[in-house]
Design a protein around this nucleic acid. Sequence first.
DNA 1: GGTGATATGTTATAATATATCATTTCTTGA
DNA 2: TCAAGAAATGATATATTATAACATATCACC
Lengths: 158, 158
Amino acid sequence: MTDLFPKKGHDHDRCIDSAIAQAEKVCEAENARFTDMRRKVFSLIWQSHKAVTAYELLDALQAEGQRVQPPTVYRALEFLTDLGLVHRIESLNAYFGCDQPDCDHLGQYFICTRCGRVAETVDEDVSIAVRKAAKQVGFKIEATTVEIKGLCHDCTTH
Amino acid sequence: MTDLFPKKGHDHDRCIDSAIAQAEKVCEAENARFTDMRRKVFSLIWQSHKAVTAYELLDALQAEGQRVQPPTVYRALEFLTDLGLVHRIESLNAYFGCDQPDCDHLGQYFICTRCGRVAETVDEDVSIAVRKAAKQVGFKIEATTVEIKGLCHDCTTH
DNA sequence: GGTGATATGTTATAATATATCATTTCTTGA
DNA sequence: TCAAGAAATGATATATTATAACATATCACC
């Protein structure tokens, strides 16, 4: 068993730094501008391993004294999700930082209902099973949403 | 290949009647009241094989001259989803009539982005793969959301 | 430095959902 | 049968999530 969720007391600054470094790389590769606002939103999303709502981001930005409105946040989110740097968690109406931006809309999300954390995995067997199920019914997949709610390993044992 | 989606020109009244009959059975078994409002909402949901939003239901009820407000619709939806008679499609914020109410939150939903129809399946291989992926990371599943967007068979061929 | 493209600001509003308390309807037991 | 409590719905207000539309600012490139 390998827990996908980060250990308590891990060096979260490293998570943030690495995510930002990766985002910079992706933006450069895509010739997309990682503006201050986008960087700020991305970094706020990465403040925790939980999914964050657009209005929580808005509040955080406003708390820093910026005069930000909802469209600004939603635009940044759209930019980041289009690049695969952030995923929308449909069942939470919230947004989550992706640490494997090349996963191309095929990941699965584990959402802990106790601690609120989210973890992403790209499990081949799940993808294969979903593709097979689709093929069986003649369905051409464009995108999949796989969200699994329950208790993370920490929360089942503590 | 067996298309999950109903054929064009199928006798949809039979879908509705059968869904209502099944709902009555479930309610009786659960000792739950299938009131006029709940029956009305359920039947509206079954008017098509698409997912329907709460406000579409509200509009439809109001169009019939009833003075209905949002909470009434949401209460009926909560009742129906709790019994497994209706599923919420998270990625659409919409509700869909379930024809296998005993599937216990483990179904998968195919959502056609062209015709808007939804079809449900309970694929063992997908469930097994998801459960295995969860086990591998020490995650205790409470509920799963599997929603697959793309083109149904009709829409790929016509 | 001017110009077009891109990004953000601003205002307003749409779409989805729930909290709260009042009223009605149903069930059940005396 | 009817009184009391439970369950459902009505009514009002408001919270939460998201977007449309147009103005202004910033950037990239010539």
